[in-house]
């Protein structure tokens, strides 16, 4: 086992531990720490696999952005008094089915790609050239999708006002 394999094994272990912690705990700070551990583990895995740009983007977007916003939203709904808020769900089974579906989808899409031995582009300049070159349409479509999601959230929030 090479040093690279060892590093990858360590990051995967960290990821699995973080993911398990996220699912199993209901205490908000511990949940956030677990999710943060998982996301940093993903960043470390990208780094080990030789994609530093993906690694820093992961930290930038998910740890610094999404996770902070999640924690922020949870703090906003904190009830007064000494009562500690808990995150509980009655949809464990449904969530498990969805997670399994996503896994099957990803495995089906990424399986053939992983078997392909051609090296993946990792240099920042080349990634930029591909995003704004051959993949421009897909890149812009993702932007439209995000805009649609934003508008949908706006509609849901406004709809709840019942004015």
């Amino acid at each position: 086992m090479s040093a690279n394999d060892l590093a990858l094994a360590v990051t995967v272990t960290v990821m699995v531990a973080g993911a398990a912690g996220t699912v199993l705990t209901s205490d908000v700070p511990r949940l956030v720490i677990s999710l943060g551990t998982f996301l940093l583990g993903v960043a470390a895995a990208f780094l080990v696999m030789g994609s530093p740009l993906l690694a820093v983007s992961q930290v930038f977007v998910y740890v610094g952005g999404v996770l902070v916003l999640v924690l922020f939203a949870l703090m906003m709904v904190r009830r007064s008094g000494d009562e500690k808020p808990k995150v509980a769900t009655r949809h464990d089974l449904g969530a498990a089915v969805i997670a399994l579906g996503v896994f099957v989808l990803l495995a089906a899409v990424l399986g053939p790609v992983a078997a392909d031995p051609t090296p993946v582009v990792t240099a920042p300049n080349e990634v930029g050239a591909i995003l704004l070159g051959p993949s421009l349409v897909a890149f812009e479509l993702v932007g439209v999708l995000l805009l649609a999601a934003l508008l949908a959230v706006l509609v849901i929030v406004k709809g709840g006002e019942d004015s």
Partner: peptide
């Protein structure tokens, strides 16, 4: 001297926000 150092510089301090939120929350 990382090839993505500029993004690294912008990305990592944002982890500190998490520390601030956690310390704020845990103070109760």
């Amino acid at each position: 001297d990382s090839t993505v150092g500029m993004v690294f510089y912008l990305a990592f301090p944002s982890i500190g926000v998490l520390g601030i939120l956690l310390s704020a929350w845990s103070s109760h």
